[in-house]
Simulated assay, not measured.
Amino acid sequence: MSNPVISSDKVEGTTVYASNGDKLGSIDDLIIDKRSGQVRYAALEFGGFLGVGTDRYPVPWAMLKYDTNLDGYVVPLSERQLEGAPRYAQNDEPTYDDSYGRRVYDYYGVGW
C-alpha cells in the first residue's frame, strides 16, 4: 500500500476532474479548520484562460476522491454546477466562518 498521507504542497496544483473524466480545474489551496485540524475545503481554481481571470470555488474536501489512474481528484460535479457555486476572486478570499461554510455545504448538498 502506498503512503496514505500527502503534503499540502503536493495537493496544490493537482488536477480535478468531473465524474465523466472532463478536467474541471486544479486545487489552488486547502482550507483547514484551526480547531479540528481537518481539511474543510479545497479551493478549486476554475474558469478564466491560462490562469488569468480564474475564480476559486471552495468545495467540501469530503467530495474529492483521489483517482490513481487519473493522478488527480474526482468530484461528482459538472462544469455547469460549478458555474452557480459559491466562489471568490483570487485576491478576494472570503471569511470562512460558520455562516459561509453552511452556504457552501448547502449548495453542494453536503451535511455541515
Rank of each mutant, 00 (worst) to 15 (best):
residue 63 M to Y: 12
residue 83 E to S: 15
residue 37 G to K: 06
residue 37 G to W: 09
residue 85 A to K: 08
residue 24 L to G: 02
residue 15 T to A: 14
residue 49 F to A: 06
residue 55 D to L: 02
residue 23 K to P: 14
residue 5 V to G: 04
residue 58 P to E: 02
residue 65 K to T: 15
residue 103 R to F: 11
residue 46 F to C: 04
residue 5 V to A: 05
residue 7 S to P: 10
residue 69 N to I: 09
residue 45 E to Y: 03
residue 23 K to L: 11
residue 27 I to F: 04
residue 86 P to M: 01
residue 84 G to C: 05
residue 20 N to A: 04
residue 95 T to P: 07
residue 22 D to F: 14
residue 87 R to T: 07
residue 73 Y to M: 02
residue 94 P to Y: 03
residue 9 D to V: 04
residue 48 G to Q: 10
residue 111 G to L: 12
residue 107 Y to H: 13
residue 5 V to L: 07
residue 103 R to Q: 15
residue 29 D to H: 01
residue 9 D to P: 09
residue 31 I to M: 05
residue 73 Y to R: 04
residue 29 D to P: 07
residue 3 N to T: 08
residue 56 R to H: 03
residue 13 G to D: 00
residue 20 N to T: 13
residue 2 S to A: 05
residue 95 T to S: 09
residue 102 R to L: 11
residue 4 P to Y: 01
residue 22 D to Q: 15
residue 83 E to N: 11
residue 85 A to S: 14
residue 12 E to K: 05
residue 44 L to C: 01
residue 23 K to A: 08
residue 63 M to A: 01
residue 56 R to P: 02
residue 52 V to P: 06
residue 97 D to V: 13
residue 16 V to M: 04
residue 23 K to Y: 11
residue 88 Y to P: 10
residue 82 L to W: 08
residue 79 E to L: 03
residue 60 P to A: 02
residue 112 W to C: 12
residue 65 K to D: 14
residue 50 L to A: 04
residue 93 E to R: 10
residue 83 E to Y: 08
residue 33 D to A: 02
residue 7 S to Y: 07
residue 87 R to F: 09
